[in-house]
Amino acid sequence: MASLFDLYNYLGFHNPYYTEVGQQMISSEFEKIIEPVNSRTLDFTAVVQILSAGYAFGDRTLIQEVKKTPWMARPGVKKGDWEYFDLPNHQENLIEQEEAALRFYELLKKNLAAI
């Protein structure tokens, strides 16, 4: 499970799913999480969010018993606890578009080289 959260503090991290029905389970595969959930309830709020915005907000999924792990968080020591990563302080720096593109490109190269 630790490898699921290696990049949890990346802004583009794909949050795994979890359920606390029975024993807490966390997985990046929705099918594995939904399997042990016997009673499944459609989350109508998530349906409306998906129809209006194209995605469900926060930790919602279409099934109330299945959630997405919190953004910028990983599982804590105790069941149900989350350890949150502090967002970096960008000090409201304003830079030119070209400089931002160059920095972004360099960061992409660095991250791709690490894979």
Rank of each mutant, 00 (worst) to 15 (best):
M1I: 13
A2R: 15
D6L: 13
L7A: 12
L7V: 07
N9L: 02
Y10P: 00
Y10Q: 06
Y10E: 10
L11P: 05
L11Q: 09
G12T: 07
H14I: 11
N15G: 09
Y18P: 01
E20C: 11
E20M: 14
V21Y: 00
V21N: 04
V21Q: 08
V21K: 03
Q23S: 05
Q24R: 13
M25P: 00
M25K: 10
S27R: 03
E31T: 06
I33Q: 02
I34W: 01
E35N: 10
N38F: 09
S39R: 10
S39L: 09
S39Q: 13
R40L: 11
R40T: 03
R40A: 05
T41Q: 07
T41F: 09
L42I: 13
L42N: 04
F44A: 13
T45R: 14
T45K: 15
A46L: 04
V47G: 01
V47C: 05
Q49K: 05
Q49G: 02
Q49C: 06
S52D: 09
S52M: 11
A53L: 15
G54L: 07
G58C: 10
G58L: 11
G58T: 09
G58W: 09
G58V: 07
D59S: 14
D59E: 15
R60D: 14
R60P: 07
T61C: 07
T61S: 06
I63P: 00
Q64A: 13
Q64D: 09
E65W: 00
E65Y: 01
E65P: 00
K68P: 05
K68H: 11
T69A: 10
P70S: 04
P70R: 06
W71Y: 15
W71M: 14
A73C: 13
A73N: 03
R74W: 03
P75W: 02
K78I: 08
K78Q: 14
K78Y: 12
K79F: 04
G80P: 02
G80K: 03
D81S: 13
W82N: 07
Y84L: 14
F85N: 09
L87C: 13
L87S: 12
N89E: 11
H90S: 06
Q91A: 02
E92L: 12
E92Q: 10
N93E: 15
N93Y: 12
I95E: 02
E96T: 11
Q97W: 07
E98L: 11
A100Y: 05
A100Q: 05
A100G: 01
A101I: 11
F104N: 12
F104C: 12
E106L: 08
L107R: 11
L107W: 04
L108E: 12
L108T: 08
K109G: 05
K109L: 15
K109M: 14
K110Y: 08
K110S: 04
N111S: 10
N111E: 13
L112P: 04
A113I: 15
A113H: 14
A114C: 07
A114L: 08
